[in-house]
Design a protein around this nucleic acid. Structure first.
Length: 242
DNA sequence: CCAGACGTTGTT
DNA sequence: GTCTGG
DNA sequence: CCAGACGTTGTT
DNA sequence: GTCTGG
């Protein structure tokens, strides 16, 4: 599901909205097209350093492979996403959910929408902040991480799609766990019981209203222009009568 | 019991 | 390291 | 090579 | 009986 994200807001606004500054020496680079499969650097707030914005690699390396993180990621183990319902059972994640939770900072993400089994169009999903698409809420998405030699390796939590995202992501019916602003700090508290965490997974999704619109498939070509998130015409199936 | 997995879903 | 599957 | 299957998944 | 998967 959530394999593409964007974060392009001004540095100042990001820091303001999450009440934290970028850690010293981290240079913020906006991006409209962050591709999970490439294990890119993303911006996170981690439980063990919760007062600053850190960098992490998108792709968790479990604790039984700490001797060779690069080798693990090259095996395409698909640890970019973690199913929230299974966090305490999944072998690669169960140790990390306990006290290695984080936020992933995006201001939007992409989901594929299927017009038919073969025809698909990506949709950009975001929460407007104000009237224009150019100001989007800074999303705090639930994640977990492993830390190896001072480097964070991160997995994004997904849950069953709500009604809105079932319409958009109509094949897999999953969505990222975008934490509600009023609850998000709880995700970063130490030593929370399993019941508390699973409650956040089940009920912590934001109550703010999402917007989504179709975008150009230039997205899949790696385009990183502002136009990547701009609305295009929805796909129209060919009509016999046009 | 030992070998092999360990993860989730993409797309033109 | 620990679990699952054959 | 042997064991086991022998089938497919609507709609946008 | 024949094919696939391990």
């Amino acid at each position: 599901m959530c394999y593409k994200g964007s974060i392009a807001a001004e540095e100042r606004r990001i820091q303001d909205r999450v009440s934290r500054n970028f850690k010293d020496k981290i240079k913020y680079t906006p991006s409209y097209n962050i591709n999970a499969f490439a294990n890119p650097q993303i911006y996170i707030v981690a439980q063990d350093d919760p007062d600053v914005i850190n960098l992490g690699v998108w792709g968790l390396v479990p604790n039984w492979k700490t001797n060779d993180p690069k080798g693990f990621l090259s095996k395409k183990q698909y640890t970019n996403n973690a199913r929230g319902e299974d966090l305490y059972e999944t072998p690669s994640y169960k140790d990390h959910v306990v006290n290695e939770r984080c936020w992933i900072l995006f201001d939007g993400f992409f989901e594929p929408h299927y017009h038919s089994p073969k025809i698909q169009q990506p949709y950009f999903c975001y929460i407007p902040e104000g009237r224009s698409i150019s100001k989007r809420q800074i999303l705090t998405i639930a994640g977990i991480y492993s830390k190896i030699q001072d480097e964070y390796y991160v997995s994004l939590i997904t849950t069953e799609a709500n009604d809105f995202f079932s319409e958009i992501h109509n094949k897999q019916k999953r969505m990222p766990l975008v934490l509600d602003t009023s609850l998000r700090e709880k995700w970063l508290l130490k030593d929370q019981p399993k019941t508390m965490i699973l409650d956040l997974v089940a009920n912590g999704f934001t109550k703010d209203k999402f917007y989504a619109h179709p975008v150009s498939n230039q997205l899949y070509k790696g385009s990183n222009e502002e136009s990547t998130i701009r609305a295009v015409e929805p796909f129209q199936s060919p009509s016999l009568f046009n």
